[in-house]
């Protein structure tokens, strides 16, 4: 079941499909986060972008995020799918769904998941701008990685 909950795919991602994976009788709340391709970043126009992944490790890291969420919010169930390949403006890049008996844990765990994705999941975004391309890194301004590895799971 775990490998079904956490996936990296080059096919379009369906919000409904990911959400359905976590809906169960004991939950009364489901939060769904959708990350889409943004056209303007600090005034710069993105034409399209590409996501590349170290796929096998990326899936493993998504599963690790799932385990961290289980430890922090034991009654939740999370599912995450991240897209790779060439995406257009407004295409869905990532969907995170979390279900829980009550809404608070579902909101918190969902936010935790996206923050951790930006820290530990080996996926990279290459921006295609009108005047060229660039690999984006350092979204969290931790480029130097002083410990040589990403921070441990205690964000939030």
């Amino acid at each position: 079941m775990a490998d079904d909950l956490f996936a990296v795919t080059d096919k379009p991602v369906s919000i409904g499909e990911i959400t359905q994976k976590v809906i169960r009788p004991e939950c009364g709340a489901v939060t769904t986060f959708t990350g889409t391709v943004r056209e303007l970043t600090n005034g710069k126009r993105t034409l399209s972008l590409e996501y590349h992944a170290y796929k096998s490790m990326a899936v493993k890291m998504l599963e690790q995020i799932g385990q961290e969420i289980q430890e922090k919010w034991p009654d939740t169930l999370a599912a995450i799918t991240h897209r790779t390949g060439h995406l257009q403006i407004s295409d869905i890049a990532v969907v995170i769904a979390v279900s829980s008996p009550h809404r608070k844990a579902a909101y918190e765990a969902n936010q935790y998941a996206i923050e951790r994705i930006k820290e530990i999941v080996p996926i990279w975004k290459k921006e295609h701008w009108a005047d060229g391309t660039k690999w984006v890194g350092d979204q969290l301004e931790t480029t130097a990685y002083p410990q040589g590895k990403p921070p441990k799971g205690d964000a939030l």
Binding site: G35, H82, E119, I123, W135
Partner: peptide, 10 residues
Amino acid sequence: IAFIPPVSGG
């Protein structure tokens, strides 16, 4: 061993 530049998923 994989060398992993700063990640930018999400």
